[in-house]
Design a protein around this nucleic acid. Sequence first.
DNA 1: CACGATTAAATCGTGTACGATATATTATAC
DNA 2: GTATAATATATCGTACACGATTTAATCGTG
Lengths: 146, 146
Amino acid sequence: MKTEALLQLDNQLCFPLYAASRMVTKLYQPLLEELDITYPQYLILLVLWENDELTVSEIGSKLMLETNTLTPLLKRMEVKGIIKRTRSIIDERRVIVKLTNKGSSLKEKALCIPTELLSGMAEHFPMEKINRLRTDLNNLLEILSK
Amino acid sequence: MKTEALLQLDNQLCFPLYAASRMVTKLYQPLLEELDITYPQYLILLVLWENDELTVSEIGSKLMLETNTLTPLLKRMEVKGIIKRTRSIIDERRVIVKLTNKGSSLKEKALCIPTELLSGMAEHFPMEKINRLRTDLNNLLEILSK
DNA sequence: CACGATTAAATCGTGTACGATATATTATAC
DNA sequence: GTATAATATATCGTACACGATTTAATCGTG
């Protein structure tokens, strides 16, 4: 490919990644609205539902987010009453994030979300392709994170 | 797959998309810093280098961004002196975005960016997979945008 | 045990994203 | 022609992202 052609939007990897990420987030929105949470807040809940009581940086390493993003995000979630932040007694540098009852119980409401989204998507996009995409993206992430 | 397992971070399509998008943006950053532009500003330049003198909403439809994002972004780019915004005389609702000389000349500096990134990535990620990823993502975008 | 280095969060400033609304201009219907 | 609908941007408010810096607590070494 000519160097020139590499600058065309269609030939970039970055753009479809950027656009698809935003579009998929928008797909989630009507479903997340019913839980009164945003998309990044949903990701944090996914992490906590799998493993409750994590420190801020443990959440960060799973989601690849720094404390400068997480701290305000977690504070908003605490205001909503879905998590609780407490300083660790053993090591007062650490802040333990724990689900409240409300936060835990949101999981039941969320169970239908992945299925609903995938089925909506699979109408026009074969599941096999979705799986391949996920695998490729996870591979890419692995490369990029080291 | 059990419904429960669908809520695991690893099984989501949304998360690797979100994380990979942010990671790839970070890869661009050192290169874009030399041009003194941000990543979304780079995308706008890609569009204008292909086709100069577009309206705000024409840029928006190519990048899937609304005017509430673009207007401030374009204003910052105008302040930097890389584009010029002018009301159309034919239809005063429209704003024509045009590259300045500085904006045009940034293209030469940018020519090496895609090659440099792809080569860095291809070390651990076969080009064939990158191409497949791009194709799949573009397919997904097509589905999602209608 | 003391003190510099490391670690964990928080804070600050800037720049996106985007839903909702406002404003101004042009098109359309009657 | 004029009221109204449609179109194109802009504005506003909220919520991320993230580089850079700060603050506070713990660790490690002499």
